[in-house]
Structure formats: C-alpha cells, structure tokens
Deep mutational scan, measured.
Amino acid sequence: MDVFMKGLSKAKEGVVAAAEKTKQGVAEAAGKTKEGVLYVGSKTKEGVVHGVATVAEKTKEQVTNVGGAVVTGVTAVAQKTVEGAGSIAAATGFVKKDQLGKNEEGAPQEGILEDMPVDPDNEAYEMPSEEGYQDYEPEA
C-alpha cells in the first residue's frame, strides 16, 4: 500500500510541476504579447503594419512553449490582441483601416495563427491545408 501511495504522490508532483510550467509559459506569452502591443503603439504610420505582424510573430513563438489545451486559448487571445492593436492603430490615425491585415508588401496577414497546427491532446499534428499553395516548377 505504501508503494501505491508513494507512486500516487510522485504522479501528483509531476502534474503540479507540469501545471506550473504551463502557467509560466502562458505568463511569458502574455508578456511578449504586451511587449508587441507597446511596440505597435510606438510606431509611426509606416511601421504600424509591420508592428502588428511582430506582435503576432512574438506571440506565436511563445505559444510553442505552452502545451496542451492552453495553446488553443493563448492563440485565440493573441489573435484578438493583434486585431485590437490594429483597431487602436486605425482609431489613433497611425494607419488607414484599409491597410490593416496586410503586410508591407500588401499581402493579407489573416491566418497567421489560424494555420498553425495545434492539437490540445498532444496526440497528432496535421499540416495546414494546401489550398493556398501553388506547385513550383523550376525553369529549365
């Protein structure tokens, strides 16, 4: 019985440690998101679009440190934060509304985080759909 109880105690310690790591990862992701939003706020009209992409990228980098179902929630929060940063930029006159959601080359930025393969159960990952990809044929 002692062996059984000791095993359960060790398992509990492992769960607590994993929860603490997840909590730490979420806190880091939130900190990076805040950094990115402050970065966007300090940019001029020309830099705002690039700044919004930076927020998304920093958040995406930190999301990889967070495991399990938390990833889905962090990704949703990050996307809403990026959308909010863009709205703030438009409201303050840093950028025109028609410039939001495009990178410096004018290509749409939507789907940055949505296409990231995420499995809350950590069982399997699927690649994003290939609808947006084109076949590449090298020139002879």
Rank of each mutant, 00 (worst) to 15 (best):
G93T: 10
K80T: 04
F94D: 03
K34L: 04
V40F: 14
D121R: 07
V71S: 04
E35G: 05
V118G: 11
A90H: 13
G93Q: 04
K32L: 12
T64A: 08
L38T: 10
D115R: 06
F4A: 00
G93M: 02
V15M: 08
G84T: 05
A124E: 14
G25I: 06
A19G: 05
F94T: 05
E123Y: 12
L38A: 03
A19Q: 02
V118L: 08
E104H: 05
D135A: 03
K12A: 05
G41V: 11
K12Y: 03
G86E: 09
V82Q: 05
D98R: 08
K60S: 03
M1G: 00
E83Q: 11
E131R: 15
V71W: 14
A140Y: 09
A19I: 04
E28Q: 12
V70Y: 02
T92R: 04
N103K: 06
M5N: 10
V74A: 10
E83G: 07
K21H: 11
G93Y: 02
E114D: 14
Q62Y: 06
A89K: 03
Q99Y: 10
K60M: 12
K58M: 12
P138E: 05
L100A: 10
G93E: 06
L38N: 04
V95A: 05
E114H: 15
K58L: 10
G25L: 13
G84P: 03
D135V: 06
L113P: 06
G84L: 14
T72E: 12
D135K: 03
A69I: 10
V48H: 00
V74W: 09
T54N: 07
Q99L: 15
N65I: 11
A56S: 15
G73I: 11
G7Q: 15
E105N: 13
P128K: 06
Q109G: 02
S87G: 13
A27F: 11
Y125E: 04
K21N: 04
E104N: 05
K45M: 10
P117Y: 11
G14W: 04
L38E: 06
K21A: 10
P138C: 13
Q134V: 02
K97A: 05
E137P: 05
G93S: 09
Q62G: 05
E13V: 06
A91I: 09
T75L: 11
G31T: 07
A17R: 12
K80C: 08
V95S: 11
N122K: 14
P117W: 10
M5P: 00
D115W: 03
P138D: 07
E126S: 04
T54Q: 09
G86N: 08
A91R: 04
Q24W: 08
A91T: 10
D2F: 14
V15R: 00
G86D: 05
G73S: 09
A140T: 08
T22I: 13
D98M: 15
T44L: 13
G93P: 04
A56P: 01
G14H: 13
G47F: 15
E28F: 05
A90I: 03
Y125S: 05
G68A: 04
E104T: 07
G47N: 10
K34Q: 03
V26D: 00
E57W: 06
M1P: 00
V63G: 02
K97Y: 12
E83T: 08
K97M: 05
N103R: 10
T92G: 09
K60P: 01
V55R: 01
V48K: 00
V70P: 01
V15Y: 02
V55N: 00
E137G: 04
T75G: 11
E20V: 08
L100E: 10
L113V: 06
D115P: 04
L8A: 01
A140S: 15
V82N: 03
Y133G: 08
G86P: 03
K6R: 08
D121H: 07
A69M: 15
G106I: 11
E20R: 03
K12R: 15
G73R: 07
S129T: 11
D135R: 08
M127T: 03
G106F: 06
Q109Y: 12
K6F: 01
F4V: 01
G93D: 05
T92C: 14
S87P: 08
E110P: 08
Y133N: 15
E130T: 14
Y125T: 08
V82F: 06
V37N: 00
G14T: 15
M5H: 00
A56Y: 07
G67K: 07
A27S: 06
T81D: 02
N103C: 12
T81G: 05
G67F: 04
E83N: 09
E126H: 08
A91C: 09
L38I: 03
V26I: 14
P128M: 13
E110D: 10
A17T: 09
K10Q: 03
L38Y: 15
A78R: 06
V118Y: 08
A91Y: 13
E61Q: 09
T44F: 12
A53P: 01
T72C: 08
E20P: 00
A69V: 07
V26K: 00
V49E: 03
Q109M: 03
V52L: 09
A17L: 10
E104R: 15
G84C: 11
E131F: 03
N65V: 10
L113Q: 13
N122C: 14
V82S: 07
I112P: 12
V70D: 01
F94Q: 13
G47L: 14
K80P: 02
E114P: 07
K21Y: 12
A69Y: 14
G84D: 03
D135W: 05
V63W: 09
E28A: 08
V37R: 00
D98E: 10
V16Q: 06
G36A: 15
K43F: 11
N65S: 10
Y125G: 15
E35N: 12
E123R: 03
V3F: 02
S42T: 09
G132E: 05
T64I: 12
Q24V: 15
Y133K: 05
E57N: 11
K58G: 01
Y133S: 05
M5R: 08
D2P: 02
G31F: 14
V37S: 07
V15G: 01
S129C: 06
A140W: 11
D119H: 04
L38Q: 05
A85W: 14
G68S: 13
V40N: 00
P120M: 06
K97G: 07
A107Y: 05
V49C: 11
E114C: 04
P138G: 11
K23M: 06
P108R: 07
G73V: 14
G86Q: 07
N103Q: 04
V74H: 01
S42W: 09
A91E: 03
E20I: 12
A90M: 05
P108L: 09
L8E: 00
K23E: 00
E46P: 12
L113S: 07
D119P: 13
Q62F: 10
G25W: 14
F94G: 01
N65Y: 09
G68C: 02
G51T: 15
A27D: 02
S129D: 07
E131M: 02
A29Q: 05
A85L: 14
D98F: 01
A90F: 15
A124K: 15
T33P: 00
K21P: 00
A89T: 06
V74R: 01
Y39D: 02
Q99P: 02
Q99A: 13
A85Q: 02
A17S: 13
G31R: 13
V49S: 14
E105S: 08
G51Y: 14
Y125M: 02
E126N: 14
K80W: 13
N65R: 13
F94Y: 10
H50A: 12
P117K: 09
A53M: 03
M1E: 00
G106Y: 06
V15S: 01
E46V: 05
V55P: 01
L8C: 01
G31W: 04
V118D: 09
E126R: 10
K97P: 04
L38H: 04
D119Q: 05
E13Q: 06
G51H: 13
V118W: 02
G86F: 14
K10N: 06
V37E: 00
A19T: 02
T72K: 09
A78H: 11
Q99C: 11
T33I: 05
T72Q: 10
V40G: 01
E20A: 03
A85P: 05
A124I: 02
V49L: 15
T59W: 08
K6V: 02
Y39I: 06
T81S: 09
N103E: 06
E57H: 07
G31P: 00
T92L: 12
A11G: 04
K43Y: 11
V48R: 01
M5Q: 00
K45Q: 03
V118M: 08
G67Y: 12
T75N: 08
T54V: 07
